[in-house]
Amino acid sequence: MTEYKKPLPQPTPETQHFWDGCRAEKLLLQRCKETGKAYFPPRPFSPFTGSRDVEVFEASGKATLYSYVINHRPARGFEDDAPYAIAVVQLPEGVRMMTNIVGCAQTPEALQLDMPLEVVFEKATDTISLPKFRPAKS
């Protein structure tokens, strides 16, 4: 494996389970048990009520394309990818996350808002895999 040159996340105690999940190819979200609502990014309490009574669950891995830009001035490590889309996807569980869209052309024609997507995990290092999304196969 060639050296990974893009910015890597550094997990913290509150987010470690999320990154462990990605390494095991599971997209883990959290839910507030009082309201039943999911949230992201990870934290050990509910942003809706302040309650510490929360649980981790595995997301469906489905999403739709919510919005994006196609970046022509690459960030460090992305030189070979430009132009590339930086996207925000809507998960049916009720949360949004930033990601990249893989497995399709990085053009406005190929990237239609609300198109169905599914998660894939791109291994960056032995400990970090990044959740990315590709056009849904089914």
């Binding site: 910015p7 913290t12 994006y68 830009v69 001035r73 590339y84 930086i86 996207a87």
Partner: peptide, 21 residues
């Protein structure tokens, strides 16, 4: 650093602008 930078954001021109489409 964990949830946006890894996806290749390059300052405000790639973040401030994401909602527009």
């Amino acid at each position: 650093g964990q949830f946006e930078q890894p996806y290749g954001v390059m300052g405000p021109p790639t973040m401030f602008t994401i909602p527009v489409l």
